[in-house]
Write a protein that binds this DNA or RNA. Sequence first.
DNA 1: TACGTTACGTTGCAATTGCAACATAATCTC
DNA 2: GAGATTATGTTGCAATTGCAACGTAACGTA
Lengths: 213, 213
Amino acid sequence: MDIRKYESIIKNVTLFFGTEGSGLDLAVKNMDGTIKSYSKGEFLHMAGKALRKFGLVLSGTVQVLSDDINGERTIMASVSPGETFGESLCFLKKKNSPVYIYTSEGAVVLWLSAEKIKSTEYYDRFTAMIAERALAMNNRIQILSKITLREKLITYFTQLAHQNKSNTFNVPLNREDMATYVGTNRSALSRELSNMKKEGLIDFYKASFKILK
Amino acid sequence: MDIRKYESIIKNVTLFFGTEGSGLDLAVKNMDGTIKSYSKGEFLHMAGKALRKFGLVLSGTVQVLSDDINGERTIMASVSPGETFGESLCFLKKKNSPVYIYTSEGAVVLWLSAEKIKSTEYYDRFTAMIAERALAMNNRIQILSKITLREKLITYFTQLAHQNKSNTFNVPLNREDMATYVGTNRSALSRELSNMKKEGLIDFYKASFKILK
DNA sequence: TACGTTACGTTGCAATTGCAACATAATCTC
DNA sequence: GAGATTATGTTGCAATTGCAACGTAACGTA
């Protein structure tokens, strides 16, 4: 197991922040940590089985997928290096979790036991990680449950302004991802952003936005 | 403090499940629990201040609200007896939480310290509570991020069928709430449900639904 | 500079949906 | 069971949005 190879990534993850060198080795060992490499197109986990450990992506990208009735597979999340997946499912020991874990481009994953974490000094951080995710999802739900695109955008901008404590802020997503985040497509997003600018509600240049009214 | 008066509710909450009588008194005491009554139209918490404790509603209903730029207040959640609010905000000690807690009809709330919980035997359950909420929100996001109403409904039904391990299930919401949950209005929902029935995709009678195809 | 590539803006049109208004059905109360 | 009340279904119309196709700007590379 070659934790040290990925130390620069791991030590910046909230869960391990500030843990380095042999301290990191020990921490990972206490969580039954195992590193596994996956090649392009491989499944890391199949639906219907319990997730014994949750994953921290060390390199590559991992997709969380689920099926619907028509047998269509939807991407529920795309996980990048330094990000985790499956903590809640794993912590709750959900049987029959309806999700697949898959990598289209190949990935390296550090698998960690949520059960073992409970008896380490990292338990509080683990809980905090889930709580942070809950807040982030809550924000997104606030946006997605608005009816019109304009309302969605106003909600999104309000959140960003609040986070930045300023009416000027950068949107951390490109237009394509921003559109997905607020539940629309790029062209509709561009149209509405332009309308809002025309009406003097906001101003923006590239990723920099300003709320005017 | 009159915990016992609400024992029948409290002991059925996941957090306290199975805890009764003097055990419950002790548990609540160890979490710095305090009961407070609020009258119609009262604010339990104002935006901009940290939430020192999270709440468990004992009677009445409590609304979680937030403002947007236009000064419009949106209901983020409506919390009924036996349900909790603010766990994540409280656990993370978020300053400047942008939410108001309000009761339109009056309520009784048991306030509990997330900090104190850490050193009790209930910590695992607390974490599980947040994880459950994360999963529930994730389900809703899957639904809300679909484009068409039909896709939203198919996703919702797929989730319910999976939870029930059967293609027949009851929807635990009336049409009005179901519409809100999937991000539309009642009449559009009725229309689409009828269309899906006409096309032989589903069948339903009142709250009982069946996936056919 | 010329070229390719990628990100972003614009627009026409068809499809979906919100909304309002009304119809019908179920439920409750007396 | 009459009448009130609430839940659900139906429908016409206007508004919003998805989608596709194209235009424009920014950036890197040879």
